[in-house]
């Protein structure tokens, strides 16, 4: 890899996804792109970069940006945000929304574990039994992730990192070494490809947005821009949940932390809840 090639890769990722990648981390870059090189039938990463430079193939450029983004995720990741969602946020919203529909967004959902965890938590809380409509949207920049998420098929390792066994028994079926999520839970989530650094207003307004372990990859300016878009997509009194240690205090536009927490924010500071 020449420094020029590395710099081109980093510029593409930044332009397409807003993510800042350190050009000095050549080994990490080559590692992440290895599977793409093989999938696309190139002999080396240099060949792939050359193809991008000469052909300007948009599909390949997006595939490269996609392959560079970290996709780590897990069911009920960090546990607490999901118990807070079920025990505090949901009852609060159910009370305030009356008969209005409840809309929830997993923004940057990777392979779907986050959105499905929310669907499972809602199912357990028997939310919506009074006839209230509940909509869950999972979105990501990565087409490949969205496809996998929609299929709802997970490996044995994936279902063991955060998913309580009672959920596995109740909602999954084992077929050919993999675990298939039941149609009744899969149907609760709608999937779409959304780039958070572009215009996001088409996804609509939400009462809860989970945007966890996504913001950390942006530079300060971009993070602020994405946050104000997310704040704009929240209904009044809606909640934004970010990852642990992803405090958005200085950058939050129209958001304030609830319960002195560093990862749960509320749209309207005047109606802050004190735990």
């Amino acid at each position: 890899m020449t420094p020029d090639d590395l710099s081109l890769i980093c510029r593409i990722v930044r332009a397409r996804a807003g993510y800042v990648i350190d050009q000095a981390k050549a080994a990490m870059i080559e590692n992440r792109l290895g599977p793409l090189v093989r999938r696309e039938g190139f002999n080396s990463l240099s060949d792939l970069v050359t193809a991008i430079k000469t052909k300007r193939d948009e599909r390949l450029v997006w595939a490269l940006a996609d392959a560079m983004l970290p996709k780590d995720t897990a069911f009920f990741r960090d546990r607490t945000p999901f118990s807070q969602f079920r025990d505090v946020i949901l009852p609060d919203l159910e009370q305030r929304l009356g008969t209005q529909p409840l809309r929830i967004w997993s923004a940057g959902c990777a392979t779907g574990e986050e959105a499905y965890s929310l669907a499972l938590a809602l199912d357990e809380a028997r939310a919506g039994r009074g006839g209230r409509a509940i909509e869950i949207v999972g979105s990501d920049l990565s087409d490949r992730c969205i496809e996998r998420a929609a299929a709802g098929i997970f490996s044995q390792m994936e279902v063991q990192k955060g998913l309580p066994i009672r959920y596995l028994v109740r909602h999954f079926d084992r077929q050919d070494e993999a675990w298939h999520l039941s149609a009744s839970i899969r149907q609760k989530v709608q999937w779409s490809r959304v780039n958070l650094i572009s215009e996001i207003s088409t996804v609509g307004q939400f009462d809860v947005i989970f945007c966890r372990y996504v913001l950390g990859g942006f530079d300060d300016l971009m993070r602020k821009q994405v946050l104000s878009q997310l704040a704009g997509a929240l209904n009044d009194n809606g909640y934004l949940i970010v990852g642990r240690d992803e405090a958005v205090l200085d950058q939050a536009v129209g958001l304030s932390p609830v319960w002195g927490s560093s990862d749960v924010y509320r749209r309207d500071p005047a109606l802050r809840i004190v735990a």
Partner: peptide
């Protein structure tokens, strides 16, 4: 109370 399917790793054990 819980159920781990082998093979497992440290992440699975700590999650469970």
């Amino acid at each position: 109370d819980e159920y781990i399917m082998k093979p497992f790793d440290g992440d699975v054990i700590s999650a469970k």
